[in-house]
Amino acid sequence: MKILVCISNVPDTTTKVTFTDNNTKFNTAGVQFIINPYDELALTRALEITEKSGGTVTVVNVGLADTEPSIRKALAIGANDAVRINAEPVDAFFVAEQIAQYAKNEQFDLILTGRESIDYNGGLVAGLLGELLNIPSVNVITAIDVDNGVANLERDIDGGREKLTCKLPLVASAQKELTEPRIPNMRGIMAARTKPLKVVEPTSPQTYAATVGYDLPAAKGGVKLIPVEQADQLINILHNEAKVI
């Protein structure tokens, strides 16, 4: 069983988002970067699967050298080896093409991603990979078990849940309930230092989409406080003034 986990390097969730260069670049000054939380769930689940039925877990990241601390952390959590595709992750299609290019020759049984990165919120890489590699893609999974070359999965659907089965290989994206994240222990951290981290150059650097500018939400006009003894007035205000109910 060979599993590939795609990880993204994202700003920590407490980051106050600002931009530079006339609002065209994310301001990384003082920002702590982490493994995208959903990708960490994908990684943990991959490890649980290989611990049970054998196999290896490889992590792949499309990024420049500054993403290596996150890759090392993934190795510390337990991945066997890692690959960094040395390119700026400009857009989802570009990222997926790079990963597909690498994965094509490696014959992975299962590819896991997070449901989306918490910075660009695209949620596109799993589906793109599925089509590019001509294998099924199952989004927002909350459970996966693999048995005899077949995966049993559960995923979120609009207004409910679905159970499905799928022959391997396949790509799936991790939703929150999939598992609990694992904290690397000292042994893991030590071992990670010597685990293989291969750097490969990108192929055909075509990009399809590019962010041309950023903007921050307009500041709120200030809160209108309703005294607690007149709390019942809220309904009236929402109905007649705000007109939202």
């Binding site: 857009d91 989802a92 299609f93 997926a96 919120n121 695209g122 949620g123 596109l124 890489v125 799993a126 589906g127 793109l128 599925g130 089509e131 590019l132 893609s137 199952v138 989004n139 927002v140 995923r155 979120d156 659907i157 609009d158 399809y208 989409a209």
Partner: peptide, 23 residues
């Protein structure tokens, strides 16, 4: 941009070699 739409958009984009934006 529902769960269903988001399962399809990237696959359709890959099949058409089209740029894709969600959300």
């Amino acid at each position: 941009n529902t769960y269903t739409g988001k399962s399809l958009a990237p696959r359709v984009a890959a099949g058409l070699k089209a740029a894709v934006v969600s959300g």
